[in-house]
Amino acid sequence: MTPVRYARTGRDALGRLVAGTPVVAPNADGRLEVFAPFTGGSIRHIRQVTAGSTAWSDWQSLGSP
């Protein structure tokens, strides 16, 4: 797999910071998916728009554990 440079900062649109180590994995169609804990206790998710792309979705909350 080719390394992907991830240029986003560690903040979401509301200014919350990533509060732990993100986990990255490819999904079935090859897009990378990132899951990360944020300040405030939420888990958030971001993904490549298409496999191999440098375009990413916006962070989406998956709620709090």
Rank of each mutant, 00 (worst) to 15 (best):
M1P: 14
M1Q: 12
M1W: 09
T2E: 12
T2V: 13
T2W: 00
T2L: 12
P3N: 09
P3D: 11
P3S: 11
V4S: 12
V4D: 00
R5S: 14
R5E: 12
R5L: 12
R5V: 15
A7D: 13
R8S: 12
R8K: 13
T9M: 07
T9F: 06
G10C: 13
G10R: 12
R11Y: 11
A13V: 14
A13T: 13
A13N: 12
A13R: 15
L14Q: 15
L14E: 15
G15M: 02
G15F: 05
R16Y: 13
R16G: 14
L17K: 12
V18A: 07
A19K: 00
G20F: 06
T21A: 13
T21S: 14
T21K: 14
T21R: 15
T21V: 13
P22M: 01
P22Q: 02
V23G: 13
V24H: 04
P26W: 08
N27A: 02
N27W: 05
A28T: 09
D29P: 10
D29Y: 01
G30V: 09
G30C: 07
R31K: 06
R31P: 08
R31V: 06
E33M: 09
E33C: 13
E33T: 05
E33F: 02
V34H: 01
V34F: 07
V34C: 05
A36R: 05
A36N: 01
A36D: 04
P37Y: 04
P37Q: 02
F38R: 08
F38I: 04
F38W: 08
F38D: 04
F38K: 09
T39P: 00
G40R: 04
G40N: 01
G40K: 07
G40D: 03
G41M: 03
G41H: 10
G41K: 03
G41V: 09
G41I: 04
S42D: 15
I43P: 08
I43S: 11
I43F: 03
R44T: 08
R44E: 08
H45E: 04
I46E: 09
I46N: 11
I46A: 01
R47V: 08
R47D: 00
R47C: 10
Q48H: 09
T50W: 01
T50D: 08
T50Q: 14
A51N: 03
A51I: 03
G52D: 02
S53C: 01
S53K: 06
S53R: 00
S53V: 07
S53D: 06
T54D: 11
T54N: 11
A55L: 08
W56Y: 01
W56D: 02
W56I: 05
D58T: 14
D58A: 15
D58N: 15
W59Y: 06
W59F: 06
W59N: 07
W59P: 02
Q60I: 12
Q60H: 10
Q60V: 15
S61Q: 05
S61P: 11
L62C: 09
L62G: 02
L62I: 03
L62E: 11
L62S: 12
G63I: 01
G63R: 08
S64L: 12
S64W: 03
S64H: 11
P65T: 03
P65D: 02
P65S: 09
